[in-house]
Structure formats: C-alpha cells, structure tokens
C-alpha cells in the first residue's frame, strides 16, 4: 500500500480550487479529506469548527454508506446530502480517492452547490491524476525528497520521551 504524499505545488492548486468553490458556491466552508479521514485542505471560516473531527466523521460517513452500497451490490454512493435546520452539507467523492465537503446555509442553495461542485470536481480530478503520474515518475528519486531518509532511531525515540 503506497502512502499518500502531497507536494507544495499540488497543494497550492488544490487550495486555489477550494477557494474558488467556496466563493462561487457561496459556501460557509469547503474541505477536502482523504478516505481515511485526514484533512487535506479547506477554505472558509474554520473558526468555530474542529476540522480534524469534521474530516474523520465525514470519512466515516462515506465509509458507512459505501458499506451499504456494497451490501446492495452497487458502486459507492458518490454524493451524500444532509439537510439541517440551519446548515446543510454536501459530500462527494473526487477521483475515487478523496472526499469533498461543502457546508452551506440559506445564502446558497443545493442547486448552486451541485453545479459548482461538479465543476470543481473536474478540476480537482485533473490535479489528482497529475499527482499520481508525478508520484510514479518520481518514485526513484524519492529518497532525497523524503524527510524520512535521514531520520534516525534516536529521532524517533526522542519523539516518545
């Protein structure tokens, strides 16, 4: 199983796309999570929101409905929508590998969010595909790039003092 590695340049592009989506969808918060629940990036007001917990629960949500889909013998549900009394959340899968969440209230609408998510999904998919290609190509030169190349056992022990 390969690790999920994100480099500066892709991160910037992902970040830019999330910002665009945040503005165009008139959202409260837009966030991207890997399927294991680790937050990749977000745009919007994260002041009163624990984004780490949000990421983990969102991935749990996708995992649970994915389990249901499997049980029913169909592909995973690629879009989930939860309507609340104040805020709503739209959750979708991008490039089969990451989860895009959009939190919005009455200043936006499901229609707008849907449309904008669709456009951003296409852009994000391109970025992630390029990332995969790059990861393949750079496999050999990886040792120099990795912070782990020169980590010693002492460094690790140090962390657990």
């Amino acid at each position: 199983m390969s690790d999920f590695v994100m480099y500066e340049e892709e991160f910037r592009r992902v970040d830019e796309e999330l910002r665009r989506l945040y503005q165009l969808a008139n959202a409260k918060l837009v966030f991207l999570v890997d399927k294991n629940g680790q937050l990749i990036a977000s745009a919007g007001d994260t002041h009163n929101i624990d984004t780490t917990a949000l990421a983990s629960l969102t991935a749990g949500n996708i995992a649970a409905t994915g389990g249901i889909a499997k049980l029913l013998g169909q592909k995973e549900f690629s879009i989930l929508f939860h309507e609340g009394d104040r805020d709503n959340i739209h959750i979708s899968i991008v490039a089969n590998k990451v989860i895009l969440g959009v939190l919005f209230d009455q200043r936006s609408s499901l229609g707008i969010v849907r449309l904008r998510v669709k456009k951003s999904t296409a852009a994000l998919t391109r970025i992630f595909h390029e990332m995969d290609r790059k990861a393949l190509g750079e496999n050999r030169g990886r040792a120099e790039l990795s912070p782990f190349a020169e980590i010693t056992d002492e460094d690790i022990d140090q962390l657990f003092k």
Binding site: M1, S2, D3, F4, V5, M6, Y7, E8, F11, R12, D34, N36, G37, Q38, I40, P147
Partner: peptide, 15 residues
C-alpha cells in the same frame, strides 16, 4: 497509509 503533506509539513498516521 500515512498521509505526508509537504506543504503544511505534516505526517499523519493511523493506529
């Protein structure tokens, strides 16, 4: 599958 983010300089591992 650890998640290594070179931009925010984070390594996340799942136990």
């Amino acid at each position: 599958m650890s998640f290594i983010n070179y931009s925010s300089r984070e390594i996340n591992c799942k136990i």
